[in-house]
């Protein structure tokens, strides 16, 4: 859907943890990400827990930016809280991740989302996240 992810999110290399926005509407965003061997969040050929968390956060940021692409407001995105972040397995270098973020609530400048990360239809991680989307 959107090839130029750098136009959407505030993060820039080497801290970009999503490649493409595959689907997006008001409620849901889906991204893909191929883990490069030289990714800064790779350790011992595995994409780390922090990498997965950032991948979810950037999926949420890309979705929020896409939905407000016609407005002049450039929204930031800081993770404020993460709850029930469960990891079932860590992906390996060259794995292709599919990440889905569903918006479950909003309070002032804070968005609450549910994120899941999978690889080849196997669930790797899930979490609840609160993201500050003010400036």
């Amino acid at each position: 859907m959107i090839a130029d992810i750098l136009a959407l999110i505030p993060q820039k290399p080497p801290f970009v943890m999503i490649d493409k926005l595959l689907e997006c509407d008001e409620k849901k965003a889906v991204t893909s990400f191929c883990i490069a061997p030289d990714n800064v969040m790779v350790s011992d050929c595995e994409f780390t827990e922090g990498g997965l968390m950032e991948n979810v956060a950037q999926t949420a940021a890309a979705g929020a930016a896409y939905n407000t692409r016609d407005s002049d407001d450039r929204i930031g995105g800081y993770i404020v809280q993460v709850k029930n972040f469960e990891i079932f397995a860590l992906p390996k270098v060259n794995d292709m991740l599919t990440t889905t973020v569903e918006k479950v609530g909003r309070m002032f400048d804070m968005s609450m989302i549910l994120g899941t990360v999978s690889c080849n239809n196997v669930l790797l991680a899930k979490c609840e996240m609160s993201i500050f989307e003010g400036k």
Binding site: P10, Q11, F15, M17, G50, E54
Partner: peptide, 14 residues
Amino acid sequence: KGHFPGQPVLPGAC
């Protein structure tokens, strides 16, 4: 340099 350009912040992931 990427988190964020001109506005360095230690990522929560780190």
